[in-house]
Design a protein around this nucleic acid. Structure first.
Lengths: 331, 331
DNA sequence: CTGTTAGCGCTTTCAG
DNA sequence: CTGAAAGCGCTAACAG
């Protein structure tokens, strides 16, 4: 179990050279069928499995890539990881997964650890300083998801369109005052979302305030509910779905029901129809993002990528059950 | 970007031997501080990063492990992956992630690909035939999660205890009639859960019926709501949380609110506090499962594991807001 | 403290 | 079609 059989042992037992054994596994077309057969059989017998590390050192290729995400428990990421994985498998790539728990130093640490043993890196919602990202990008091909750095291939899920629609939707329902619940200030996504909401509100002449819920999550949303109420708004748009749910729970605690007395819109649409009432949310195409990111990385690895790629995925509003006309509070 | 600087280049530029450069990175305590400084600096300048592949070949250790799960989008797994990752990081292990989409051949393929480049493997809910699992276990240390194979270290999540408590909980609230929503009939988990519910109901002299929701999921639960109502029960225990949410939604559609008019309990506790009202559920401690699995693997790697380990994790009931005393329907 | 010398296991020309 | 030989980049005794 510890010392694995090597190519030499197979060679000796099969009565051939090491080169032949090697070829039997990598270029079987180059040697006679019966030799392949013989080699494979004896390999099987002694439990020989090619050592990919040695192979990698020799060829300079190992087909491993690294994927770093801030929080795998955030339902936004699993579909992305899954689709990326799938795309990776197609090219027989193995993927290292790294979870940073939203901490920059852990992200840096993981990237550093990965960079010496991968052909390329995909950084999702990276919180690393730009120069640090560039450092890694200089070492190995890097693709970014939801982080916009010029010169580094990136796929961005642009919530702007969806957010704009969200504001319009609220306006149509009659809301005049809305509050935006902010995510991490360093997050590109948050910046996009905030900006879009701000613009739309201005255009529709709605009043806008904002409340922070950082790091985003159910608890942060729950805690933010008080301030949301104080804001005097009649509707909230949250940085993400989980935070939105927290707000709904927090409001309920204060006897403010959704959507009768307060409207709430989430973002990312990761909960789907799962909750009750079902959350109105800005959908994203994170599966597609994963697929495309890996595609870009593959292209990068085969030098097929020449120009600066900035792939933007649009979003849309999915209206469900947490939005309704505003409730006129007395007093 | 393609040809990375090697130890030799650093050595030459720094005017030392390759061994010294190597030591500057791996055993800095063995050489003078100023040499370390000098080496590190020139390395930095030319963008040298130790090649972990070469290092691995030389030392025979690379600290990589493989993790294979059936479906990363199933909310059951992310927390497990996350805790495993965390535990792995502590020992500077990097983890390969593999998603099988519940397909045996993909699982086999991933395991085969991983086995040549990892120190150990963790297989979650493996669908592989036992002999195949044993094959991999002979090649590399393997730890199983939710798969019970004698002789291979495994951690099992046992829903029985939690299910029993769920039934008791309902009994204490005053319920006399409960309905169990079945998952896949071939699923070991479902069998285990159904059996536990049946036993507990019998013991507490409660009447029990069952309704199928197969394949489990939100829609199946939603559709099952009608039958749940017809059953005459006042409470339901669902095979999993998602199905439970579907039932709640289905009941709501029929103007039966939870928990005032009907109590619902889920299983797996993957939704946490996310929903409103928050779902009462049977927790499965999958985080702990991940942590322990990795711990076992580490022990296995350092030959600290002697006897056959079969670690069983108990489950517990997490009472939240979807259970209440029974509503006495008129008529 | 630092340099020299062998490999780790595999692939890959280059000959036969 | 198969073998011999030369590394891939790094580490690890063993000397100095």
């Amino acid at each position: 179990m510890k010392n694995n059989p090597t190519i030499s042992q197979v060679a000796e037992l099969a009565g051939v050279s090491r080169a032949t054994v090697s070829r039997a596994f990598t270029r079987p077309d180059l040697i006679s069928a019966k030799t392949v057969e013989k080699v494979r059989k004896t390999a099987q017998e002694i439990g020989y499995v090619p050592n990919r590390v040695a192979r990698a050192l020799s060829t300079g290729r190992h087909g491993n890539i690294g994927l770093i995400v801030p929080d795998i428990s955030n339902p936004f990421f699993p579909p992305l990881i899954r689709s990326m994985q799938r795309e990776a498998d197609e090219a027989s790539f193995s993927v290292f997964i790294g979870n940073t728990d939203e901490q920059v130093d852990r992200e840096d640490q993981l990237a550093e650890r990965f960079v010496g043993q991968v052909e390329g890196l995909v950084l999702c919602s990276s919180r690393l300083p730009e120069e640090q990202v560039r450092y890694y990008a200089a070492l190995r091909p890097v693709v970014l998801v939801n982080r916009d750095i010029k010169g580094i291939p990136r796929v961005l899920i642009d919530s702007a369109a969806g957010m704009t629609k969200a504001v319009s939707h609220l306006a149509e329902l009659g809301h005049r005052s809305v509050v935006y619940i902010e995510g991490p200030s360093t997050s590109w996504s948050n910046q996009q979302r905030r900006l879009a909401v701000r613009k739309a509100a201005k255009k529709l002449k709605m009043s806008l305030t904002s409340v922070s819920a950082n790091p985003p999550g159910f608890d942060a949303g729950f805690l933010a509910a008080g301030k949301v109420l104080e804001s005097g708004a009649t509707a909230a748009i949250a940085f993400d779905d989980i935070t939105a749910q927290g707000i709904i729970a927090g409001l309920a605690k204060a006897d403010v029901s959704t959507p009768d007395k307060f409207s709430v819109i989430g973002c990312d649409d990761v909960l789907g129809a799962l909750t009750h009432p079902q959350l109105t949310s800005v959908s994203n195409s994170c599966e597609e993002a994963g697929r495309i990111a890996l595609h870009l990385l593959k292209d990068l690895l085969t030098s097929k990528l020449t120009s600066d790629v900035r792939y933007v995925l649009e979003t849309d509003l999915v209206v469900r059950e947490t939005t309704a006309p505003p409730f006129r509070r007395k007093k």
